[in-house]
Simulated scan of single mutants.
Amino acid sequence: MPYEWIAPEDPAPKSAPLAELHLWPYRSLLRRDFVTFFAATSAMILLPLLAVMGSPVLWGLLPFFIITVGGIWYALQRNQRDGEILEELRIWPDRITLDHIHPRRGHHSWEANPYWVQIKIDPHHEKIPNYLTLKGNDRVVELGTFLSDEERAALYDEVDFAIRAAL
């Protein structure tokens, strides 16, 4: 699953959280595979140009091939940047924090008292099944919207247990 619980250090310092959770989107194309995929795709797209090499038709087709390869490059780079989203949930006995770090939208933080935090899962949400939210300090925040439905359902139980254990 694209999340992990960080175990507290033993013996844990007083300022260290009792539980820490890191969440990130699933990445199907790793950075090292990007070069292989892009090279193979470019070779397959540019292969038909060999048939018209040396003729004036090459100059008519070349701009379309350049636009196609450039579009694929842009889409893959944007996908890589969007995959750098990170959510960090930290739980102390007296507070809970959620930091959402997005490469294009910046950094957003939320903090509340865990005693008053309500964790909810909406299995029939109109846009996101098993919509997972935390409510505290008169604010509702989403948790792990980039996870799959099953992962959010499993995460609900784990986060609820961690919050209750911290009290």
Rank of each mutant, 00 (worst) to 15 (best):
V57G: 00
H100N: 05
P17M: 08
E20T: 12
I67A: 09
R164S: 15
E87K: 02
P103S: 09
D138R: 06
R139G: 02
E4G: 08
G54W: 03
N113G: 07
P56C: 06
Y74E: 05
R105F: 10
R95I: 08
D149H: 15
L98V: 03
P93M: 11
A43T: 15
N79S: 10
T97K: 11
I96C: 15
T41Q: 14
N137D: 11
L29R: 05
L61P: 01
H108W: 10
M44H: 08
L30K: 08
A162Y: 01
T36D: 13
W92P: 11
W110N: 02
L167K: 03
F161A: 13
I45E: 08
S28C: 15
K120L: 12
P93W: 04
W73E: 12
P114I: 01
D33M: 08
F34C: 05
F65S: 02
R32Q: 15
A16R: 05
I6D: 05
R90V: 11
L98P: 02
A51S: 10
R104K: 07
D10Y: 04
E150A: 15
H125Y: 06
E20V: 14
P123A: 14
G106T: 04
A162S: 01
A153D: 14
A166P: 06
E151A: 12
E126T: 14
M1K: 09
P17A: 10
L46T: 06
P25E: 03
G54L: 02
L86A: 03
V35Y: 11
P8N: 12
Y26T: 13
I72R: 01
Y115H: 15
E84D: 09
H100S: 07
F65Q: 00
V159P: 02
F34A: 10
T97P: 07
A51V: 01
Y26A: 13
N130Q: 14
W73R: 13
H108E: 12
H108S: 10
F161E: 14
T41E: 12
H124M: 13
R90I: 12
I6Y: 02
D82S: 09
P2L: 10
P8I: 06
P129T: 13
Q80D: 08
A154G: 12
D99Q: 12
L30Y: 07
G144E: 03
E87V: 01
D157F: 08
W110L: 04
A12S: 11
R31L: 14
G106R: 03
T97A: 13
L155V: 06
A40S: 12
F161H: 13
A153C: 10
E84G: 03
R31T: 13
L147K: 00
T97I: 11
G71C: 07
A75C: 14
P103I: 08
I163G: 00
L62G: 00
R152H: 09
D33P: 00
S28T: 11
L86D: 04
H22C: 14
I101R: 07
D94Q: 08
L29D: 08
P48S: 04
P48K: 00
E88T: 09
L50M: 04
Y74K: 07
R32T: 09
E20L: 15
D99V: 13
Y3R: 06
S15D: 10
Q118P: 03
